[in-house]
Simulated scan of single mutants.
Amino acid sequence: MRVNDLSGRKTPGRRGSSRSRRRGAWPGPLAAFGLALAGLFGVLGPGPAASPAQAALLAPAVSMAEWPFPARPDPAGIASPSAPGESPVAGPRTTPEEASVRTLSPLAGRIIVLDPGHGGIDGGAVGLDGRAVEKTIVLEIAEALRDYLHQAGALVWLTREEDRMLDDESGRGTRKERDLRARMVMINAPGVEAALSLHLNSFPSSRTFGAETFYAGVRPENRCLAALLQESLREATGSPRGIKRGDDLYVLRTMEPPGALVELGYLSHPEEARRLVDPAYQRRLAAALYVGLWRYFARADRACSETP
């Protein structure tokens, strides 16, 4: 993200290439991935003993030294709305064991919006002499995160699923302003319980690196969510950065549900840019965000006003 991209000010877009995406089943089902994290992070406490069939579904507990987590889950059997405000549409049947696991997940039934920044003529930040483009990378990460969340039973909307800018069709303001307003319509839809806007950063110095998370200071839940997301990103990537207030950012200051804007790295840092175009590293980032959301909803009924 360039500094002013989400402030509502006019900024020139950058063009960038994006590769086509194949839809369908992802390799390697990751049934019960969410419940396996309960033992890893201690967020659920002791639970009922798993049946042999359930135990077979559970991924083994891993240490943070073993990031990234396994490959993308199979999204088959997930029910999700086709658009904000619509009723969930039932997908293919799942096994009783998978349904039981989702029932135990703090993410089950949660409605979450993921906002991959930029798109179309607005490429966002660029690195590696144009080979790393923000709009493409953040969409890949959002898709991986969506699949992790789906497997845990969450209902997930993406503000965009292809390489395009959005339009609120009001005819008012610049193309960028209409794009931002259209995103906020989805983010602020009734029933949304959390929203993440995903971006990449750029800086004149090529020495600056690391993921960081911004939040609006209007409610304690925003800071709580941002801190938990950043904690997971730090564990997964070793980022030296922290959380920051972002009240001047348009997306954050107009966001109604609890949410955060996450800068997942710096494309101006050559080594980090090379990692960001690596699908395995993208899944690592998606898994870190998944863990942060898991932690947030696992403690949502406790005092989230306390800084974690």
Rank of each mutant, 00 (worst) to 15 (best):
P270Q: 05
L229N: 08
L228T: 04
L285H: 04
A236P: 02
G238F: 11
P257E: 07
R284G: 00
L249H: 11
R274P: 05
H269Y: 10
L264H: 05
T254F: 13
V251M: 14
R241F: 08
G242F: 13
L233G: 03
Q282W: 02
L252T: 00
L261R: 06
E272K: 09
D248E: 15
Y266H: 15
P240R: 13
L267W: 03
E271G: 14
A260K: 08
E263C: 12
E235R: 15
D278A: 10
P257I: 08
L228Y: 07
L233W: 00
L249G: 07
R274N: 13
P240S: 12
V262W: 02
T254D: 12
G265K: 01
R283H: 13
Q230A: 10
Y266E: 02
D248N: 14
P257R: 07
I243R: 12
H269C: 13
L233S: 00
P279I: 05
V262N: 04
Q230T: 08
Y266W: 10
P240N: 13
D278P: 06
R234I: 05
A236E: 05
V277N: 10
G265T: 01
L264S: 00
T237H: 05
L267V: 12
P270W: 11
A280H: 09
A236C: 10
T254A: 06
L233D: 01
G246M: 02
D247A: 13
D248G: 11
A236D: 04
Y250I: 02
Y250N: 04
G246C: 07
A273M: 06
S232K: 06
P279H: 02
S232D: 10
Y266V: 09
L264P: 07
R234D: 07
R274Q: 15
L249M: 15
L267S: 06
A236M: 00
L285C: 01
S239F: 03
M255F: 00
E271A: 15
L285F: 06
S239R: 07
P240D: 08
G265C: 00
Y250P: 06
R284N: 09
R234C: 02
L249R: 13
L229H: 08
A273D: 03
L229D: 02
R245M: 11
E263H: 10
L228Q: 12
L249A: 14
Q230S: 11
L233N: 00
Q282F: 11
